[in-house]
Design a protein around this nucleic acid. Structure first.
Lengths: 346, 346
DNA sequence: TTGAAAGCGCTAACAC
DNA sequence: GTGTTAGCGCTTTCAA
């Protein structure tokens, strides 16, 4: 009465051993320490493995070696009505980089649906996976919040690497990889200067944001020697905030260009330009940050700072491998430099 | 000389048993069949579990029960220069839905970096995970290609559910969940008719695409009784193709509105309007498909058909649970209805 | 170079 | 109700 026959059980080490006429242990060696085998035996075992389509059972291997070869990654809810879609590209890059190192990604989410209430909620996902030995390590991404997860994981001595510097805790010793936001914004600002702009405004985030401070520093550095009076404003990371702030600035200090802390804010500037019949690029220049899909396809195109997420992913996985191998990890941090994707808005 | 002390090994069933003064089996029962225990014993065991922060070791449980409680999901490369960012939202919805059913998502990718060459390449990721019993089942999403994975998985009797109908193989018996594209497009088209539009053009995909055919059918249905001569064009799913085709149509049949098979194509239409100084919504109306971030934040906003991805995720996981429990799954397919997000472009 | 024994932590089957 | 035994498939000793 079975609705469909169960798939046949996959072959085990014992099946391969029998077929090759050796012991189970020899098959195990053929896989993990091939050098130990006489070439002739090795070939015979490999033939059997191939013929049977044998793959080591992960659960058994995991149980024995205490290594799941799984990396945990917490998915935060997709933000809508913003241009923050970098997660997509990042996750894919991470899957690729992990695969090459023999790891898979295990996705999990925070507490029950609703936005995190307590820190305990936020940390529950990590805790469960850790206690059940489901993953070997974590990659932590939401460090922009001053994520309590990093501190908590450190205290538990749980292996993890962070995408993002430990701004709030310079003492932290965990490995991290980050992108030099200041350099990126400086790149964008210099690009505008090269185009002849003099009055270049900065639309950044509130001063609580370390990342926002960092990016702003890039603007200030590139603007060195020029007046910046009234040219900097802090706004929330929303399209509307960017729209309102840019409108106000055009009325007051009338900048000829805007450099923004995010594509979301930059899109807000594009809204203002559209409302006033101004043309991005020729009338007022705009530079965003993240090279989101929105920046790529919006009419005229939005010039934007692009994070090298593929490199970030590779660096993260490399750091993780070193960490798990207890290798001395010389540099606790890796800082990568973004590039500028120039489009019609500048 | 260890660079950092290894984290202490998590407690096991035996530790809990000792602390509670019962056998290991009783602890196991307390977790998996609490009804079997005397309430008093149960409470004592639960106290011990709580005190020790015990969690069953997943590998051991997996090995014994042959269930990993992991669902495999293949990540296809993020498409850039399009507005197809639905994957982000979908993956998150899936993580949530899976969590509630006690599953985690395992992400993997296709063959080595480069775009799939052979079908074998495409299928290798699935094959590896299946043979190593790393996952209990798969969720297959890229059915729009006439994905060979579904057929291959069926032949292996591998448990999976598909997001997308088996267009190319109506005989297929695997469970699937899909969104009624025709209904969505009909919704968008009717919306335009309600706004007084008469000449509503269809910018669709080439006829090989089953999904494209389906969506086009929605336009035709809503346009019943009106002339559609010269109002339909098939284009590739790129911004440029949408731009070129809409420009040509404005010059020839001069429609007052465009309904598009994707946000990507719709953005192309917005490009054309921007080039000609036409205002989306008031001069020419545009409706896209996917409710991407681009649609949400582009100046004026892009009206777009929104897929109920959260519902899709829940339905997929529900189908998977039934499948894995060998429950009779009455309907092999579930068809969900999208909604219309109305914005400035219409 | 190969094989035998033991055990990772858990649960299914059965005995008490 | 609770405990005992056995074994899931693998790798780490250690002996041959």
């Amino acid at each position: 009465m079975a609705r469909h026959d169960a798939p046949p059980l996959p072959p085990t080490l014992a099946d391969v051993a029998e077929r090759a006429g050796v012991s189970r242990q020899t098959v195990s060696n053929a896989i993990n320490n091939p050098d130990l085998l006489r070439p002739e035996t090795l070939a015979r075992v490999q033939d059997a493995i191939h013929a049977l389509g044998y793959r080591p059972n992960r659960a058994a291997r995991h149980l024995r070696t205490r290594a799941s070869h799984l990396i945990g990654l917490r998915m935060s809810p997709a933000q809508e009505f913003t241009a923050n879609a970098a997660m997509d590209r990042f996750v894919h890059a991470l899957v690729e980089a992990s695969r090459e190192a023999g790891y898979h990604l295990l996705l999990f989410s925070g507490g029950p649906g609703k936005p995190e209430t307590t820190a305990a909620d936020l940390v529950r996902g990590y805790d469960d996976l850790l206690r059940s030995t489901a993953v070997d390590a974590f990659i932590v991404t939401d460090t922009y919040l001053g994520n309590p997860a990093t501190r908590w994981l450190s205290e538990r001595r749980a292996p993890f690497v962070a995408f993002g510097r430990p701004w709030e805790d310079p003492q932290a010793t965990h490995p991290w990889v980050d992108v030099d936001g200041a350099a990126g914004v400086a790149l964008g600002t210099q690009h505008l200067i090269d185009r002849g702009h003099e009055r270049i405004a900065w639309l950044g985030w509130p001063p609580e944001s370390f990342i926002g401070q960092d990016r702003r520093a890039g603007w200030e550095r590139a603007m060195a020697g020029r007046s910046t009076d009234g040219l900097a404003t802090a706004v929330a990371d929303t399209v509307d905030a960017g729209r309102a702030a840019s409108a106000a600035m055009l009325d007051s200090v009338a900048p000829s260009a805007f450099v923004c802390a995010s594509d979301t804010v930059a899109i807000g500037v594009l809204h203002t330009l559209a409302e006033r019949g101004l043309r991005p690029g020729s009338d007022v220049a705009v530079v965003g940050f993240d090279d989101s899909q929105v920046a790529q396809v919006v009419p005229h195109g939005l010039t934007s700072v692009r994070q090298p997420l593929e490199q970030v992913a590779v660096a993260l996985v490399r750091a993780l491998e070193a960490l798990l191998a207890s290798e001395p990890y010389d540099a606790p941090g890796v800082l990568l430099t973004p590039t500028l994707a120039v489009r019609g808005s500048s």
